[in-house]
Write a protein that binds this DNA or RNA. Structure first.
Lengths: 147, 147
DNA sequence: TCATTAATGCGACAAGGTTGCATTAATATA
DNA sequence: TATATTAATGCAACCTTGTCGCATTAATGA
């Protein structure tokens, strides 16, 4: 399932999670639905503990991590490791098969402690004979809401 | 002590560590000297355990971290958090007071497991009213030596 | 309705990093 | 050179983040 699809689904008012379950042959569970609901509503990259705090269903830490990693495998979520060493997860847009899912900048606000996916694509020029397969770029500072 | 100075010192064959001790009013200890020696000789960003392995002097884990963080405060070393969540430290060049010490890309090679400071400066354009104070940009892939 | 097995909860664990505190030793001063 | 000061160190304990094994639960297909 391409992530660009998610936006189309939202516009068409199709339940993303149901669609995801059918497409990826995943079971429809309350916990998974809750995790995805939080991520899609917040539209930010969130850490496991931040996600749990926003959830109405209680669930084990290991379970949340398993769900998030599953979402990453299925490519409906991508993972960022911030400069605090923690993993953050975000539902993000990616329509082109060829692009790296993490090809944009992220912004971590030190005041509100959230991470945002910026629309800016990372332009890099690696030296000759270097093969770039992934990237993890985080800008750190204060976002417009906290300034 | 500005980091650009380090290169000048090397050219002039002045002992960097002695200079550092006088300038920053730090005590001259074998452990600190060893850590800096490893970092300057390898010219890569290294993790605490990688540094220890290369050292001829034995030292406690906590001590190494304290030394590295002190070097960061004194701005002769900068810290990168890679996508594996670990901290890496590198002696790097920075001549301009105004630039962010981490303003360049880093490359983590998944084969030789090292992190290199690339000469490429990160060009970013944060949205309006976002204040960027730090950055942490890591490209991941295979370096020229491992290809 | 039942069988299959994906998903979960629990507990244990590992790695990475930090902190408190007593001890050691580098430096400044007499 | 001897002494006082205190930065630097070692050790142990601790915290946080993330993972894994295994028994149990429950979603799905037949």
């Amino acid at each position: 399932m391409r992530q660009g699809c998610i936006n189309i689904l939202q516009v068409c008012r199709i339940n993303i999670f149901d669609y995801f379950c059918t497409m990826m042959k995943r079971r429809n569970t309350a916990t998974q639905e809750a995790v995805l609901a939080v991520l899609t509503s917040k539209r930010r990259a969130m850490s496991q503990d931040a996600i749990v705090k926003q959830m109405d269903v209680r669930a084990d830490r290991a379970t949340i991590y398993r769900i998030l990693n599953r979402f990453c495998e299925d490519e409906i979520v991508h993972k960022i490791v911030a400069d605090d060493g923690k993993q953050y997860f975000a539902v993000c847009i990616k329509c082109d098969e060829k692009t790296i899912s993490n090809n944009h900048f992220h912004f971590r606000c030190t005041k509100c402690e959230t991470i945002e996916c910026l629309p800016t694509i990372v332009e890099f020029s690696a030296p000759q004979n270097y093969k770039v397969q992934q990237m993890n770029c985080v800008l750190v500072g204060v976002c417009k809401d906290c300034d």
